[in-house]
Write a protein that binds this DNA or RNA. Sequence first.
DNA 1: CCATCATATTCCTTTATGGGAATATGTCAA
DNA 2: TTGACATATTCCCATAAAGGAATATGATGG
Lengths: 117, 117
Amino acid sequence: MAGMARISTTSDVFSAIAEPKRRVILEKLLVEQMSVTDLVDALQWTQPMVSKHLKVLKEVKLVAETKVGRFHYYRAQPDELRPIQDWIHRFEKYWGGALENLDSYLTDIKSRGDARE
Amino acid sequence: MAGMARISTTSDVFSAIAEPKRRVILEKLLVEQMSVTDLVDALQWTQPMVSKHLKVLKEVKLVAETKVGRFHYYRAQPDELRPIQDWIHRFEKYWGGALENLDSYLTDIKSRGDARE
DNA sequence: CCATCATATTCCTTTATGGGAATATGTCAA
DNA sequence: TTGACATATTCCCATAAAGGAATATGATGG
């Protein structure tokens, strides 16, 4: 065995969102629950492509599935992005522009407040 | 041409941090500037491996390089993580537990305040 | 100038994985 | 039941990219 490739990443959230198409899917599913066909129609991708990406997202729990008859409805599970958020938080305090940061905090708080209503 | 592989991702910040070893390097470089040899010693990886990962990180500007004689000092450029942070922010407001969120905001603000001192 | 240290690069192999096409599986409606 | 619809899966190909080993390049000190 000469060359070992990268670690299997299909079970890693960081890798799951490294794929641009999967980010697009997540953005869609954050707004509303959608079936595979809904996504195919909205994104104009092939159905197997959508299903395959959904499978990866499901494996890392970034999406959840509800089956209703022959329809499989998928929805985003944003909580699962927290490990990434937590990791990035460690770097955040070193970002430039303290004042600018403060602004973003306030915006942050405001948006969370909105979400509660 | 039958199968097309994924988009070249070496120029994408999301992909850059999808690799666990690169995250480790970034964590190291956040604390202090280090030369390649410093990293080799600290991480016990081979020198080419360290150099290769640094190259990827440098391409996406997650690290910056300062050459001093034969030493190349690298440092993290945490600002470049903002695109990821921004993307995740769009999901954050949908996280469960509003109260819990508020707590993390306060912690967030506090840590930023600490960083300013 | 040259031996040595510091780093980068090249060559090679292997694995992961995305996309296409075809097909399988599952479910409903008439 | 059966045909049509919804989704998943399989097979195949092409490519990105990680790790190892060897080597090239760069810079210093003596």
